[in-house]
Structure formats: structure tokens, C-alpha cells
């Protein structure tokens, strides 16, 4: 996409950055609504996540007296990393403002940085529950990372580019449909794992012994919990966007229209996540690595097929 004038460029960067920030909490709301509808309830309104965040921002911050500054760093780094990721990845059909050869790896490592600090913050409280969640988080990430890299390799193969802008906005061509679909399925599993969704994790349960992400933030409260929730909704949006880019949403030349299209597609994906969450049971924890490994193998085979 070519920008002729500086104001236009600034406008497009501003939209690229601000629109996702504004709409991110909508998607957990959509998922909850779908789940409620499937269960025959009316469910909370779509704006509930926004209300939650605003309410939490006004609450008292209760800090465990064993903690250090790392406890603050966890949620803040998580939000910061997601904001940085947002500037690196094309969203919908709008290209990322920051791009260079190898930003793929920065993208992956920003997720790792967020993971380092959130799990450290969990260990900082000295609670065995949170330690448990942190251990699961870092362990499962090992397997799901392989799926992510294989998927990105597929796109590197098809686009011959090393920057997220060129490789994720690459058009379909002959022979690329199969591997791209396989990668998209692999990434969808990655999404479910990274955003703590059924069948990997259950965001609703209050059984500490079975949770992964949610159990790590048991001690966060007030504004810090708001940061945690905002970070996780941003993460959901970014990963939905990533999956959509692999399937290749229809591009339109008009920015506003393509943003509308993107929001529609992302909502559809959120609905799909909600449906999966309603119809499936949580996997036993010991089977989670198998599922993630299957996703990695799927993307890996896609990569081999892409080499043809």
C-alpha cells in the first residue's frame, strides 16, 4: 500500500495502532456471549470486558508482602510487549509501520519476553498455585513455539520475504493453499493455547489445580489485574489476526472498508472460538502437549509440502 503524503501516512499508522487498542476487549466479550447463547443464557453484554477494566482501574491495589518490583513488571511487560507486537504485525490488510528483515523473530521473542516476566511475577508471590501455573505456561510454550515457527517458515517460503509485512500479506498462489491452511489450523491451536481457551485451558474455572494462565494472576488486583486482562485481550486479537492472515482475508483498496471487513472476520473467528469452547471438554493436562505437538507436526508437514 503506497502512501503519498505524510499526513496520510501518519493517519494510517495511527489507525493501525489505535483501532486494535480500542476494539481488543470486544472479542472476549463476543466469546462469552456466544458461550452464553449456546448454553441458553442471555450472558453479559458485549461491553462487559471494558466495564471490568474500568472498574479494576479504580480499585485498591493489594500487593502481597513477599513481592518485589517483578510483581509489577509482569503485567506491564505483558501489555508493553503486546503493544510492540501490534506495531510489528500487519493487521487486517493494513501493513505494519515498523518492518525490517527478521522482525519475525522479534515478534516471537516479544511473546517470550512477556512470558518471562509474567511467570516470574507469578513465582514472586511465593504461592504454590501460581508456581504451578507458571510451570505449565513455560512448559507448554516450548511445544507451541515450534508450531509458530514452522507456520512462519511456510510463509517465508511462499513470499521470499523476511519481514512480517511481506510474508503475511503475500497473496495466494498455486500450491500454497494446502500448506497455508495446514499452518492456519496449527496456528489456531496455538491461539487456543496462548489465550487460555478450551480445550487447553479453561478461562472460567475456579479450580486452581487445573488452570494455566488464570492461576498465575491470582494475586494481581486492581490496576495490575486490569493490565493483565487488557494484555490478554490484545493477545487474543493479535493471534486471531495472525490466523486470518494465513487464510488470506479479501483485500479491498479502501482502508475503512478493509478495517470493517477485518473486524467482521475477527468477530467470526471469536464466534468460532466460542463455539469450540461450548461444545468441547477440556483435555486432561497430560494430553495438552500431544495436542500442541500435533499442531507443530501439522505445520511442519506443511513446511515440507511448501518446499516443493
Amino acid at each position: 500500500m503506497l502512501h503519498t503524503t505524510t499526513p496520510q501516512l501518519i493517519l494510517s499508522i495511527a489507525t493501525h495502532f489505535l483501532v486494535p487498542l480500542a476494539i481488543a476487549p470486544l472479542f472476549p466479550g463476543i466469546i462469552n456471549k456466544v458461550k452464553a447463547a449456546m448454553a441458553g443464557r442471555r450472558g453479559p453484554p458485549l461491553r462487559q470486558p471494558y466495564l471490568d477494566i474500568f472498574k479494576l482501574l479504580r480499585k485498591t491495589l493489594v500487593i502481597s508482602n513477599t513481592t518485589t518490583w517483578i510483581f509489577f513488571a509482569g503485567p506491564l511487560v505483558a501489555v508493553g510487549a503486546m503493544l510492540a507486537v501490534e506495531l510489528l504485525i500487519p493487521i487486517g490488510s493494513s501493513p505494519a509501520p515498523i518492518h525490517f528483515a527478521g522482525d519475525v523473530i522479534l515478534f516471537v521473542y516479544l511473546f517470550a519476553a512477556a512470558r518471562f516476566f509474567t511467570t516470574s511475577a507469578a513465582l514472586d508471590t511465593g504461592s504454590s498455585f501460581e508456581g504451578m501455573g507458571a510451570a505449565r505456561e513455560v512448559s507448554f510454550a516450548v511445544v507451541s513455539e515450534a508450531a509458530l515457527i514452522f507456520s512462519l517458515l511456510i510463509m517465508i517460503r511462499f513470499s521470499s520475504g523476511l519481514s512480517l509485512n511481506t510474508l503475511l500479506l503475500a497473496p495466494f498462489k498455486q500450491g500454497s493453499v494446502g500448506p497455508r491452511l495446514m499452518a492456519a489450523v496449527g496456528l489456531f491451536v496455538f491461539l487456543l493455547a496462548e489465550t487460555s481457551r478450551v480445550p487447553v485451558d479453561d478461562p472460567d474455572t475456579h479450580l486452581e489445580l487445573t488452570m494455566i494462565h488464570e492461576v498465575m494472576v491470582l494475586d494481581h488486583s486492581g490496576p495490575l489485574l486490569a493490565a493483565v486482562q487488557y494484555a490478554s485481550s490484545l493477545r487474543l486479537l493479535i493471534l486471531i489476526n495472525l490466523v486470518l492472515l494465513f487464510i488470506g482475508p479479501p483485500h479491498t483498496g479502501i482502508p475503512i472498508l478493509s478495517w470493517v471487513l477485518f473486524i467482521l472476520e475477527a468477530s467470526a473467528t471469536a464466534v468460532l472460538v466460542g463455539i469450540i469452547e461450548s461444545v468441547m471438554a477440556r483435555l486432561p493436562l497430560r494430553h495438552v502437549p500431544t495436542l500442541l505437538a500435533a499442531a507443530a507436526v501439522l505445520s511442519g508437514l506443511g513446511f515440507i509440502l511448501a518446499l516443493r
Binding site: 485498591t60 491495589l61 493489594v62 500487593i63 502481597s64 508482602n65 513477599t66 508471590t125 511465593g126 504461592s127 498455585f129 486452581e208 491470582l218 494475586d219 486492581g222 490496576p223
Partner: peptide, 12 residues
Amino acid sequence: FIPVASAPTWGC
């Protein structure tokens, strides 16, 4: 500016 309180770690 944010009201802050201190407490032991919550043991569920």
C-alpha cells in the same frame, strides 16, 4: 495516587 494495600499472598 493509586490506593495500595499490603497483605500476605492469597492461598486460595
